[in-house]
Design a protein around this nucleic acid. Sequence first.
DNA 1: TTTCCACAGGAATAAAGGGCGA
DNA 2: TCGCCCTTTATTCCTGTGGAAA
Length: 405
Amino acid sequence: MGSFDFVREYSPYTNREALLDDYTPDTLVGRDDELDEYHGALQPAIYGEQPDNIFLYGKAGVGKTAATRFLLNKLEDNAEAYDDLTVRTEIINCDGLNSSYRVASNLVNAMRDPSNHISETGYSRSQVYDLMWEELDANGGIILIVLDEIDHLKDDSILYQLSRARENENLTEARIGLIGISNDLTFRDSLSPKVRSSLCERAISFSTYDANELRAVLEQREQVAFKEGVLTDDVVPLCAAFGAQESGDARKALDLLLKAGDLAREENDEEVTEQHVRRGRELLEREQVARGIADLNDHERLVVYALATLEAEDDTPARSRDIYTRYEALADTAAGKDALTARWLREHLDDLAMLGILDVSETNEGSAGGKYREYDLQQDLAVVLDALEETFESMGVHASVEDYL
DNA sequence: TTTCCACAGGAATAAAGGGCGA
DNA sequence: TCGCCCTTTATTCCTGTGGAAA
């Protein structure tokens, strides 16, 4: 009979929070050039002047958001020394907010008291913009609006509005600076020219971390987060190496270090070792897939299932029409739903590829076969099936995955 | 060089869903 | 409550694309 008391046992941490996403360290390692440039672009704000609009780009986990938090915190602190200056910053993550309308309503809500929030539907677009200008002007001073993951936006009307607010005389009291952050290097080119020129007055590129820089980042956090000497010597280099493999992603490397530490704590191990890191990596991968699949809707899951069955039969990579045929059959027999159209499927195969669940490749067989795309499961089949089975239960689908194994 | 395949993906459109004012 | 106005999502229709083959 186990006792379920909560008791503090051994912990390798002194400050676990230093490994979390939203932690801002005192200094940023290895980002000196980027910070210099960024600082220069924000400098006018301290004089109460409108800063340049800034566009940050670089791959995931290279410190764009961290640098932004770091500099804006500093700017807000420093601004307090000047009586005639108020600086406010609003950071909005555009993940899940794929329309200008949503971003505008979120911005209004971010500036309002929670009791006074507006709903996210129902207003006309211009009404929401008017509300937004009202809020911004009521606040006055310098307002820096950060749109993180800006490439999730499907239309750029909000970018045009915000970056041109003053010229278009929507604002009289407030001066706003717009900061866009993108992982997608091609996003800038997809903008309409008028938005591009005003949003990208300053474009700052963040280079990827190499393994040495990653190591420096991890060592810095290690000193804050862990007790001295609990990490064996190979832990940080290994996390750094895995991070470097993932295109220099510091966030992934930090997540991995955190997971390894958590595993050690759960198991009451006094040291965090290479073993913890390797197991942590496996767990993280599973969690990522499971979370990705849990967020999908029923039809999207059926698509993943369709591809998984094809993979189990060794029929991958599969072209989109074969996936569609399988998906149609599954929708009908397993889920008792009408299949959506092939056009819909093409749109969503793209989305699934973005999530890292599928791999895409393009083939062109000329006049014999034409041009088409082929898809492959990017993740381990067993991991995907596990995640699917869990979510299928709630759909009431009796998909016997084993049939295909 | 031109043709031609098979799909990719853009554009217009319809249908569903929600808040607002009268 | 109803009509209005709006967004979002899926559908229909259709043009665009790139390289192998003629």
